[in-house]
């Protein structure tokens, strides 16, 4: 009987738990259609200016299920400029930027955001706006004869952004 083939450590083991978790995000499963052509790279401004950001590589790591490399504290995901060039160029409609946003959603689930991002999110969740109102804002608006800004009904916003219960919404 021939010996069993020797197991090698450098064989990629796809982490399907990571891929399943990603697939549950809205448009998180689109990377499955990626055939690694690299059309997303040529027009990517972050790739042009960064030695670490490459959307094709990110899609490959998603396909391999390399969640640990993608979801660390120093995740490269935040280098994305959200320019949507990759969305425009992808022949497979993978929308790499949306996959990256889904990965950011997974980072957020783990409580990982850069401080400036966390700050804007907090302002929105507390005021319903990303740039809050103030006396100075009111004064400037008055100067230009503009109507006062309408009040954001925070009761509605707070209810909407609460996560759905695991058993689903009541119908």
């Amino acid at each position: 009987m021939p010996d069993e083939p020797e197991k090698k450590d450098d064989v990629v083991k796809v982490n399907f738990d990571f891929r399943r978790e990603l697939a549950e995000k809205i448009e998180g499963n689109l990377a499955s259609f990626c055939y690694q052509c690299g059309a997303c790279v040529g027009d990517c401004p972050a790739t042009m200016y960064s030695d670490t950001f490459n959307p094709r590589e990110i899609m490959l790591k998603v396909l391999y299920g390399l969640g640990d490399e993608l979801l660390g504290e120093d995740s490269v995901m935040w280098e994305c400029t959200n320019c949507y060039n990759c969305h425009e160029r992808c022949p497979q409609e993978v929308k790499p930027v949306e996959v990256i946003i889904s990965l950011k959603n997974m980072l957020a689930d783990r409580g990982i955001y850069p401080d400036p991002v966390a700050k804007v999110i907090k302002t929105f969740e507390e005021t319903g706006r990303t740039t809050p109102l103030s006396g100075a804002v009111d004064k400037q608006r008055e100067r230009f004869g503009l109507p006062p800004l309408s009040v954001v009904p925070m009761d509605e916003i707070s209810l909407l952004i609460e996560p759905a219960p695991p058993e689903g919404e009541d119908n």
Partner: peptide, 21 residues
């Protein structure tokens, strides 16, 4: 004018937290 609009919400920050919300 519309009464009661909020942030759109922004396509960079809040979308990065939770696309469903």
């Amino acid at each position: 004018d519309l009464e009661g609009t909020s942030c759109c919400p922004d396509p960079i920050y809040f979308k990065s937290k939770d696309k469903m919300s």
